[in-house]
Simulated scan of single mutants.
Amino acid sequence: MTNILSLGIVYDNSFDKSEELQSIIQYFLNLKSDIFGIKVSMDEDGENWLESERNEKNFILDYTLLTEKYFGEIQMQLNDFWSLNGLSLTLRIVKENDFFGYLLDFEMEQLLNQYSLDLINELIIDLVKDIYNVTKFIYAFCDHDSEIEYSPSQYKDLVEAYSILILPREKNGFDVIKNNWQIDGITSRNKI
């Protein structure tokens, strides 16, 4: 079983996939992060991948290629992020018929070696709110090894689908819904 903490950021198709991806990547690059690899599936079955690593001469971060092909993935190392050095992040691009999103996968063990579950919850919520300053998504979520499964129009399904659900309000602020289980997928959440 993988031990991944997934942070999903979801949009409807009125947003430009390439522009939103560029905003998220730039957000992390501004935090002293490094991209060390990209992968793009050239076919629907995921059998033919175009891969590039940072040390290759032909390494180009092509946002359009990443968002217009079938699957895309960017591997990053976050330096000095939440006082952690060398935190791994894999950003995956998810496209559905009427919506799309980005999954930010963190290695849970790297986080738990430094922080409690409750503090990781708060750090994730703060991260999502900060990312909203550069890209105005429809909703965000966090849970253990999760996928983007729900259209932004499926509000009732969203409310109980993830450990943490973050919904930007129309005017200002956010609604943050914390469900009964923690982001590790096992531990019950202590309700205050």
Score class of each variant (00 low, 15 high):
residue 2 T to S: 13
residue 3 N to E: 09
residue 5 L to T: 03
residue 6 S to M: 07
residue 7 L to Q: 13
residue 8 G to E: 07
residue 9 I to G: 04
residue 10 V to Q: 04
residue 11 Y to H: 02
residue 14 S to H: 10
residue 15 F to M: 08
residue 16 D to R: 12
residue 18 S to H: 03
residue 19 E to V: 10
residue 19 E to S: 15
residue 19 E to G: 04
residue 20 E to Y: 03
residue 23 S to N: 14
residue 28 F to D: 03
residue 30 N to W: 00
residue 32 K to D: 14
residue 35 I to E: 04
residue 37 G to Q: 10
residue 44 E to H: 06
residue 48 N to S: 09
residue 48 N to D: 11
residue 48 N to P: 05
residue 50 L to C: 11
residue 51 E to G: 09
residue 51 E to R: 12
residue 51 E to M: 14
residue 52 S to E: 15
residue 53 E to S: 14
residue 53 E to A: 11
residue 55 N to F: 15
residue 56 E to W: 12
residue 56 E to V: 09
residue 57 K to I: 06
residue 58 N to K: 13
residue 59 F to W: 04
residue 60 I to W: 08
residue 62 D to R: 06
residue 63 Y to T: 06
residue 64 T to M: 08
residue 64 T to F: 14
residue 66 L to S: 02
residue 67 T to G: 08
residue 67 T to Q: 06
residue 69 K to H: 13
residue 69 K to M: 14
residue 71 F to C: 08
residue 72 G to D: 05
residue 75 Q to R: 10
residue 76 M to V: 01
residue 78 L to I: 03
residue 79 N to V: 07
residue 81 F to G: 06
residue 83 S to A: 12
residue 85 N to I: 13
residue 85 N to L: 11
residue 88 S to C: 09
residue 93 I to P: 01
residue 94 V to Y: 06
residue 95 K to P: 13
residue 96 E to D: 13
residue 98 D to Y: 13
residue 100 F to I: 00
residue 103 L to F: 07
residue 103 L to Q: 09
residue 103 L to M: 08
residue 103 L to T: 07
residue 105 D to C: 07
residue 108 M to Q: 11
residue 109 E to P: 02
residue 109 E to W: 10
residue 110 Q to H: 11
residue 110 Q to A: 10
residue 116 S to L: 02
residue 116 S to H: 02
residue 118 D to S: 15
residue 118 D to R: 12
residue 119 L to T: 13
residue 120 I to S: 07
residue 120 I to V: 12
residue 121 N to G: 12
residue 121 N to T: 14
residue 122 E to M: 10
residue 124 I to P: 00
residue 125 I to P: 04
residue 126 D to Y: 07
residue 126 D to I: 07
residue 127 L to Y: 04
residue 127 L to W: 09
residue 128 V to I: 15
residue 129 K to P: 11
residue 132 Y to N: 08
residue 132 Y to K: 09
residue 132 Y to V: 05
residue 133 N to S: 13
residue 133 N to K: 15
residue 134 V to P: 14
residue 134 V to Q: 10
residue 135 T to A: 11
residue 135 T to M: 04
residue 137 F to T: 00
residue 137 F to M: 01
residue 139 Y to L: 01
residue 140 A to V: 05
residue 141 F to G: 06
residue 142 C to Y: 00
residue 142 C to K: 00
residue 145 D to Y: 08
residue 146 S to W: 06
residue 146 S to P: 03
residue 148 I to V: 01
residue 149 E to D: 13
residue 149 E to R: 08
residue 149 E to N: 12
residue 150 Y to V: 02
residue 151 S to G: 01
residue 151 S to Y: 04
residue 152 P to D: 02
residue 152 P to K: 01
residue 154 Q to I: 01
residue 156 K to E: 15
residue 161 A to D: 08
residue 162 Y to R: 04
residue 162 Y to G: 00
residue 162 Y to M: 05
residue 163 S to N: 05
residue 163 S to K: 00
residue 164 I to E: 08
residue 164 I to H: 03
residue 164 I to R: 00
residue 167 L to R: 07
residue 171 K to G: 03
residue 174 F to R: 06
residue 174 F to N: 06
residue 175 D to E: 13
residue 177 I to N: 11
residue 177 I to Q: 09
residue 181 W to F: 05
residue 181 W to H: 12
residue 182 Q to G: 15
residue 183 I to S: 09
residue 186 I to K: 01
residue 186 I to A: 00
residue 187 T to M: 02
residue 190 N to V: 14
residue 190 N to M: 09
residue 192 I to H: 12
